[in-house]
Simulated assay, not measured.
Amino acid sequence: MTLPDPLKPQTDDHTPVIDESTTDDATLIELPDATLDYFGADFDMAGLVRRLNDGDIVIPRYDSDEEDLNTEIDPFQRANVWTPARMETFIETLLLGWPVPSIFLVVESDERYLVLDGQQRLTALQCFYKGEYRNGKEFKLKNVAKHLKDKTYADLTRPERRRLDNMFIQATVVQPRGKDGPQSIYSLFGRLNSGGVALAAQEVRVALYTGPATDWIRDLNKNEDWRELFGKKSARLKDHELILRSLALRESLARMKTDWDTDSVAFDGYTPPMAGFLNSYLGDNRRLQNIDRDALENAFTGACRLLRTADPRALRYTTSLNAAHVDAILASVMQLCLDREEPTTSSITKALERLRSNTNYREAITQSTSHRDSVRERLRIAYRTLKGNGID
């Protein structure tokens, strides 16, 4: 596997974010055997659309800038990425009676099916039956076989409609088993989306851990100081992921800082890889049941305000956002706020200068950044420097 140059800017939605830990592919998460049950099923097209319209099969969508289009369904996936031409081609394939790829569904706790793979196909099918695209424009076939040209679903002949309604698509239905089931689904999701228009790690994550926690992170992402520090909103939810990383590592930092001056190593809750750690944090706090939301929200708001005032480019180690630098700085300032040791803006400015010239810190945010030693080291150096205790 070729690793990215940790000091070379990489562009994501016009916001460069360097994240060496992205090499922690979902396949690297260690899991016990047999954490997934699955079986095959066939669905007719009319039945699929009916289930989609009734909410029994869910294609949740996640848009970082807008409220969910369906308030009854927790959102997760990106807005529809198939072009109208590609949607037409898919519908034409069905009307010609040709086979199409199977889909993957996950059984939710309330017995609904969550679409794991096949979102675009099912969206195209649902839109065609409705007669309009998601933006409200009429769904009329154009660049298709001559006998289908300019037809909507309502315009199909009776035989054409029956053929489409009665056509079957194969599905693999997956049911997670035990406490490691969601992690297994995460790994499977990553593998299924490894080609084509691949989903980013956070897009996969919010698919599996929807609820108050992901909604809360979406709200935090709207904070004006954070937006100034991060930049343009990320369509791939990288800004959401950095907030999540900072929240999760702040919790580890609170445990770590008690033993830095001793030879012991306290349990800090962090276990690599980073992807699995973030999944576990969301899983443990999905309903915000184990955290003080108000205190953390105030700490996040205060930290962003201080950092923006001290240096609007505080989260950029060089010219680009560095994910490891972001989580170390933001987690540290949040913890200082919680400890009622809020630093001054002038001390933050000086601390950032010292950190950027610290060789050990540079190594901890650019090499093996999800390794436990690197995580502990960058949090230790960042926290002590921002607190004013100096650095090694």
Rank of each mutant, 00 (worst) to 15 (best):
N221A: 12
T301N: 14
R205I: 05
I391H: 13
R121Y: 00
I169F: 00
A171D: 03
I291C: 04
T152D: 07
T258S: 04
V174I: 14
A351Y: 00
T172N: 06
T157Q: 03
P4Q: 06
Q202P: 12
E203S: 02
K232H: 03
G269H: 00
M274S: 10
E203K: 04
D219M: 10
S187E: 09
T366E: 08
D259K: 00
V333Q: 14
R50L: 12
A171K: 10
E363D: 13
T71G: 12
S374C: 14
K142C: 03
V81K: 04
E228C: 15
A275M: 10
R286L: 15
F43S: 09
L306W: 11
S347W: 02
W82D: 00
T11Q: 07
L28A: 11
D165C: 09
F277N: 05
L116W: 01
L94M: 05
P6Q: 09
G211R: 14
P272G: 06
Y186P: 08
R340C: 05
K137D: 15
A85T: 01
N279A: 08
V100A: 04
V58L: 14
L355N: 13
R313E: 15
F168N: 15
D327S: 11
Q289I: 15
D19P: 11
D180W: 06
T366Y: 05
I59C: 03
K350F: 11
R384F: 12
Y113T: 03
P32M: 06
R293V: 15
R236D: 10
G231W: 00
Q10C: 05
P4S: 07
R50C: 11
L220D: 04
R121H: 06
Q119H: 07
A331H: 08
G283T: 04
D117V: 03
K350T: 12
E67Y: 02
E241T: 06
L249K: 04
T262I: 01
T27D: 07
F277I: 05
P212Q: 15
E30N: 09
L247S: 02
S234D: 06
S187G: 13
V206H: 06
Q183G: 08
E297K: 14
D294A: 14
R121D: 01
C337Y: 13
